[in-house]
Amino acid sequence: MRKNNGDIVTMPHAVTRVARALHAAVAASLTIFLLAQPAAPARADSPEKIVIMVGGITKLIYLPARLTEQLGYFKAEGLDVELQSQPAGVDAENELLAGGVQAVVGFYDHAIDLQAKGKEIKAIVVFGQVPGEVEMVAARAAGSIRSMADVKGKTLGVTGLGSSTNFLTQYLASLKGVPRSQYTVLPVGADNSFIAAIRQGRIDAGMTTEPTVSQLLKSGDARVLVDMRNVEGTRAALGGTYPASSLYVQSAWLDTHPQEAAKLARALVKTLRYLNTHSAEEIAAQMPKDYIGNDEALYVSALKASLPMFTADGKMPADGPETVLKVLAGFNPSVKGRHIDLSRTFTNQFVNEVKP
């Protein structure tokens, strides 16, 4: 401070210490106040990510998964969904059980098989009322394999060991009196790897889906042995409808995520309705180019052959679970003779809530 004569006088040290102490106290109080404030709440528009593993995403039996994404129905429900793919349903199932994904698009029969092994999963949307699978016989073997009764000593292709194609192959052979010990099962995957296995002579026959079926028929490399792409063919082969492609989750996840399950059901049922009200050409126009490939006419033809398999509402067919249980109990040692509570393998609760 200054005296009247202009000389400078320094502030006493005591006053300086008081000022510094006051400044420090204020700073400390402000810090404590800020730390005591609650953290900002998470944004309501940031949904939990749901990863769905598809057992072969380009297979037409699983078309609703990618079509739902293409149509924007997941986003319309406020869902953050990531679709991933494994070549076989059993691989997708393993990802679910390991906790790597929240849901699977695969065959319903896994729910029965796993319950017999002490694990609980539940189908919440059923896509296909029939398998959509076709047993194809290589053209070079067509003369010696005219039915599943002729597969003794042959090598049969499946997508993977423990897969639904493996289940169905064993059942169809057993119906014709051919036990598992009398033929060889070879996992060959799907799509191009299946076609290669036929062309290279590594398998005599095998089970696959569209569009692989149409590709093999067009090239002349294989012929249809058992056709389960529609209700009539499935009933002839298996004795009833066989609910197959579906969205399933672990029961424990479902108990804690009912809202997410309801949103998934709404999105997928909208897609099933779309499939039942639009032409194959209109549906194909919604799909990415890498799905359709270079032969759009072939893809559309395969799609037309596949459309009858899809449900219109995502509900479990009334006779479906019993048929699937009968098939699995016919050869699967994990299921045969075991009590299976079918009511724990699926629920129509969420699809029933979807408005017309």
Results as ranks from 00 to 15, higher is better:
Thr159Arg: 11
Ser174Phe: 14
Val158Asp: 10
Asp150Glu: 02
Asn166Thr: 11
Leu172Gln: 07
Asp150Thr: 04
Val151Asp: 02
Tyr171Met: 00
Asn166Val: 12
Lys176Glu: 15
Gly162Lys: 09
Gly177Asn: 04
Leu172Met: 07
Ala173Pro: 01
Val178Cys: 01
Ala149Gly: 09
Thr155Gln: 06
Gln170Leu: 09
Val178Gly: 00
Ser164His: 05
Ala149Ser: 06
Val158Phe: 12
Arg180Pro: 00
Phe167Trp: 11
Met148His: 09
Ser181Pro: 07
Gly162Thr: 00
Ser174His: 14
Thr169Gly: 00
Ser181His: 06
Thr155Glu: 09
Leu168Ala: 07
Ser163Thr: 13
Lys176Trp: 05
Asn166Asp: 15
Val151Pro: 03
Met148Tyr: 10
Leu172Glu: 07
Gly160Cys: 06
Ser174Ala: 15
Thr159Ile: 06
Gly162Phe: 08
Ser163Asp: 15
Ala173Gly: 06
Gln170Asn: 01
Leu175His: 14
Ser181Arg: 13
Ala149Cys: 03
Gly162His: 12
Val151Tyr: 05
Val178Glu: 01
Leu172His: 01
Pro179Asp: 04
Ser147Phe: 02
Ser174Thr: 14
Ser181Gly: 09
Ser164Ala: 12
Gly153Pro: 02
Ser164Phe: 09
Lys152Asn: 10
Ser163Trp: 05
Thr169Val: 00
Met148Phe: 10
Ser147Cys: 02
Ala173Lys: 01
Thr169Arg: 04
Leu168Phe: 15
Met148Glu: 09
Thr159Asn: 08
Lys176Ser: 12
Tyr171Pro: 00
Gly177Asp: 04
Leu161Gly: 13
Pro179Val: 11
Ser147Val: 03
Phe167Glu: 14
Arg180Gly: 03
Gly153Lys: 02
Ser164Glu: 05
Ala173Ser: 03
Leu172Asn: 03
Thr169Trp: 03
Gly162Tyr: 10
Ser164Cys: 11
Val158Ile: 10
Gly153Ala: 02
Lys176His: 13
Gln170His: 05
Thr155Gly: 10
Leu161Ser: 14
Lys176Gly: 04
Gly162Ser: 09
Ser181Met: 02
Gly153Ser: 01
Phe167Arg: 13
Ser181Trp: 01
Asp150Phe: 03
Leu161His: 13
Ala149Asp: 03
Ser163Phe: 11
Tyr171Thr: 00
Asn166Pro: 05
Lys154Asp: 02
Ser164Ile: 06
Leu168Pro: 01
Ser174Val: 14
Leu156Lys: 10
Lys152Val: 07
Gly153Phe: 03
Gly177Glu: 03
Gly177Ala: 06
Asp150Tyr: 03
Phe167Leu: 13
Gln170Glu: 06
Phe167Gln: 15
Leu161Phe: 13
Gly162Arg: 12
Arg180Cys: 00
Ser181Ala: 12
Gly177Cys: 05
Lys152Glu: 07
Gly157Tyr: 08
Asp150Arg: 03
Val158Arg: 11
Arg180Ala: 04
Ser164Thr: 10
Ser181Asp: 08
Thr159Met: 12
Gly177Ile: 05
Lys152Gly: 07
Thr155Val: 15
Leu156Trp: 15
Lys176Thr: 07
Gly160Tyr: 12
Phe167Thr: 10
Val151Arg: 06
Leu172Lys: 01
Leu168Val: 11
Leu175Tyr: 09
Tyr171Val: 00
Gly157Gln: 07
Leu161Ala: 14
Asp150Lys: 04
Gly160Glu: 15
Leu175Arg: 13
Leu175Gly: 12
Gly157Phe: 08
Leu175Lys: 15
Ser174Gln: 14
Ser164Lys: 08
